[in-house]
């Protein structure tokens, strides 16, 4: 096949264009950002030590602290509930690990669940407006309640049931308001945001701070000296449904 130089240059240019745009499309599909350069970033994570947590079975301090600092209403209708951090039985949280001979007390042991702030969050991938995204600087899966249209695609995508939709106006169910944090409006989705507003002030998450058993340990996974890194290195921990590839960042000690 004969080919002139002009044709060759044209072809070469076109193939580069196709290759570059193809790579961008792939990167978009993978949910990656375009700016490319790896930046020094943190990845916040939390370890839930259920052994310590279960020493105080009636304690709800972490839940109360979260609710009051973020204006999370307590709604009696279980289908309309808003939950950022709450208790579930171990057997329901770690279904795959169920052992039939486990003592009932251990099966029914409550453990704390919240948003997993995944490495590869499906909720972010599906959101049609960018109302939820993974922050580059600290790995928090953030929410912009101004932008959410309430399509609830993220709720279908989240394998952990961590997202709540405001089926009704939350203000009708709030008795006390914290003016430092907004409430939400009806028709948007919400979830735990790892207390980004407290982190901006140099404080830790409210739940970890108030836990009397020190069962919630918060820290940066990218810092080898952090307490979470040391704990994860020195003993076996579990994550919820790791085989799905979402890379959850809440670790459990049973």
């Amino acid at each position: 096949m004969n080919i002139t130089r002009k044709q060759f240059l044209g072809l070469a240019g076109a193939s580069i264009l196709v290759a570059v745009s193809g790579k961008q499309v792939l990167a978009e599909l993978e949910g990656e950002r375009q700016d490319g350069k790896p930046r020094p970033r943190k990845q916040y994570a939390m370890i839930v030590d259920t052994r310590k947590c279960s020493t105080l079975p009636d304690c709800t301090k972490c839940i109360d602290a979260c609710n009051s600092s973020h204006n999370v209403p307590v709604i009696p209708n279980p289908e309309h509930e808003i939950k950022w951090i709450w208790k579930e039985e171990v057997a329901n949280v770690f279904e795959a690990q169920q052992i039939p001979y486990l003592e009932t007390t251990l099966k029914e042991r409550a453990t704390i669940v919240l948003c997993n702030h995944c490495d590869n969050p499906p909720c972010v991938r599906v959101c049609p407006t960018g109302a939820t995204w993974k922050r580059e600087e600290d790995g928090i899966v953030m929410m912009d309640w101004h932008r959410c249209i309430g399509c609830r695609y993220c709720m279908a995508a989240c394998p952990y049931g961590s997202r709540s939709f405001n089926w009704i106006d939350p203000r009708t169910e709030l008795k006390v308001l914290n003016p430092a944090f907004p409430t939400r409006t009806k028709g948007v989705v919400e979830k735990c945001v790892f207390c980004y507003e407290r982190l901006a002030l140099g404080q830790g998450p409210a739940c970890a701070e108030v836990c009397p058993a020190k069962a919630l340990i918060f820290g940066d996974l990218n810092d080898p000296q952090s307490e979470v890194r040391k704990m994860l290195g020195s003993g076996l921990t579990l994550r919820r449904r790791p085989s799905l590839g979402t890379g959850p960042n809440i670790y459990y000690i049973l």
Binding site: V126, P128, T129, I149, C151, Y153, G187, V188, V189
Partner: peptide, 29 residues
């Protein structure tokens, strides 16, 4: 049917104002 299912219908144009090419919903629209 999509419209009546949306929690904040007044913001529906956000799908066009901030298109997210990684969302299947964008491509469905």
């Amino acid at each position: 049917f999509i419209f009546v299912d949306i929690g904040q219908p007044m913001r529906i144009l956000n799908v066009l104002l901030y298109p997210q090419f990684h969302s299947v919903m964008f491509w469905d629209m």
